[in-house]
Structure formats: structure tokens, C-alpha cells
């Protein structure tokens, strides 16, 4: 299988006053088609930076990021918008649904920007909502739903455009453990159905739900391997330089 996501020596620098922060420091890894990968790290580890770069919301300062073989670093803002639209499905911690739109309209948004005709858009959004078990609430507004239900809407929205990568940023962060588990099961089902899922989290117990863990610390990859290996979840700082350090 060819690499769907490939980081080659990706660096991201931020200037904070006089000091330069290496939010990503020569990060390299590959994610293949159909994998379920968790990117884990404490706050400040650079996982949000990696997530922004993977999500094409940001571009590396140096190094190369290839998404489906395309060099994202060379793209302008509109090309990035187009690639986000076609290649990526976002699931956010705070759901990020548009409160004034109905569930159906919310799920239609990515298709709208992709230029899908109205009736087709409508049908596809309906199917996606049915898939997450909300087929009976098409005309509801997001705030009429519970947190777990809202997150399912955002999963439907992430799926509807049939993206190459589903990118979930702390998807259980705002949920209680029970509904959080439901969401994780749903992500696993997506993975089993053949989707590539990238999960970003600070929580080891959630990360182990994935197949593979990439652990970040201070902008560097400190572990990259099987999620069930004992080294995958050791306390940060004690992990040593892991497989792909």
C-alpha cells in the first residue's frame, strides 16, 4: 500500500517574542491507506501542530508533507481549501456544528463547497445521518441534541464527502466516558469499513483504541509503532527514543 500521509522532516517554527518555538522538529512518519493511527502527546508536544498540518489548515516551515502524493507545502490558500474539502473529514472536540443550520444542512456544508448539486447533496447528507443513527432528526438544530448526538452529526459531516482521511481531534474530549466510548466504537467501525482514521489525543486510554500510536514530545516523534506494545503508553520522558525517533 502506498503512503496516504507522509511527513518528511517536517518542521514548524513559531516566533514568540525573541524565542523561536519548534512546534514540530523534524517530524517524519507515514500513514498508509486504511490505517487507524493515534497521535498522542501532552499539551505542548506539538500534536496540535501536526494535526493542523495533516488537516491542511497550516503548512510546514520546512520539510515536506505529502497527502495522497501531493505536496501540500506548495499549495496556496484556495488549493488548501479544496484539498481540505475533498481529502479530509474533520471531527472536532467541540463538534463545531453551525448552530443556525439544521442537522441536514450542517452535513451538507462540505458538499456545498464541493459544488455538489442540491438534490444529490440532500440525499447523501441524509444517508450519512442515517448511518450515525440520526435519520429521524434531520430537521433538528444541533443545540436540541445531546453532546454525543452532536458528535455523531459531526462524524456524519466528516464522512459525507467520502474523504481519504478522517481526522479526529480529541473527539471524546467533551463527552462523558460512556458516550465517548460510543464515539470511539464508531471510529473503529469506520476503520473496519476501510477508512483511514487519524485520532489526535492526549489520553493514552483513548489512544490504545487505535492500531498504531505515534507519540510526540517537544515536537519530536518519540514512539511510532503498535498501539498494544508496552512502550506505547509509558509515561512521557521515560519512553526513551522509540522506533522512529
Amino acid at each position: 500500500m502506498s503512503a496516504l500521509i507522509e511527513f518528511r522532516d517536517v518542521c514548524k517554527l513559531y516566533q514568540m517574542g525573541d524565542t523561536t518555538i519548534h512546534a514540530a522538529d523534524h517530524v517524519s512518519f507515514r500513514v498508509d491507506q486504511g490505517e487507524f493511527v493515534a497521535i498522542v502527546g501532552q499539551s505542548g508536544s506539538g500534536k496540535s501542530t501536526c494535526m493542523n498540518i495533516i488537516g491542511c489548515l497550516d503548512v510546514p516551515t520546512s520539510g515536506t508533507y505529502l497527502l495522497g502524493g501531493q505536496d501540500v507545502g506548495q499549495m496556496d490558500k484556495n488549493q488548501l481549501a479544496a484539498i481540505r474539502n475533498k481529502m479530509l473529514g474533520f471531527i472536532f472536540q467541540q463538534y463545531n456544528l453551525l448552530p443556525k443550520l439544521t442537522l441536514l444542512e450542517n452535513v451538507e456544508v462540505p458538499l456545498m463547497y464541493a459544488g455538489v448539486p442540491k438534490t444529490e447533496r440532500h440525499d447523501r447528507a441524509k444517508i450519512a445521518l442515517e448511518m450515525v443513527g440520526l435519520g429521524d432528526k434531520l430537521k433538528h438544530k444541533p443545540l436540541q441534541l445531546s453532546g454525543g448526538q452532536q458528535q455523531r452529526v459531526s462524524i456524519a459531516r466528516a464522512l459525507v464527502g467520502e474523504p481519504a482521511v478522517i481526522l479526529a481531534d480529541e473527539p471524546t474530549g467533551a463527552l462523558d466516558s460512556h458516550t465517548g466510548r460510543e464515539v470511539l466504537i464508531m471510529l473503529q467501525q469506520l476503520h473496519e469499513a476501510g477508512n483511514t482514521v487519524v485520532l489526535i489525543t492526549h489520553d493514552n486510554s483513548i489512544a490504545v483504541q487505535a492500531q498504531r500510536i505515534i507519540r510526540l514530545e517537544d515536537g519530536r516523534v518519540v514512539y511510532d509503532g503498535d498501539a498494544h506494545a508496552p512502550e506505547a503508553v509509558v509515561t512521557p520522558g521515560l519512553a526513551g527514543k522509540g522506533a522512529a525517533g
Binding site: G55, L57, K77, N78, A81, A82, R84, N85, K86, F90, N96, L97, L98, V109, P110, Y113, A114, R157, G161
Partner: peptide
């Protein structure tokens, strides 16, 4: 602002 951010993340171009 948040709405604009969401729309952009979902693929809205600047023009849109």
C-alpha cells in the same frame, strides 16, 4: 469568526 473557521475547515474558499 467561529462559523467562518468551521466553513473554511470544511473547504470554503476565500472567495466563497
Amino acid at each position: 469568526t467561529k462559523e467562518i473557521g468551521i466553513r473554511k475547515a470544511l473547504g470554503a474558499r476565500e472567495g466563497a
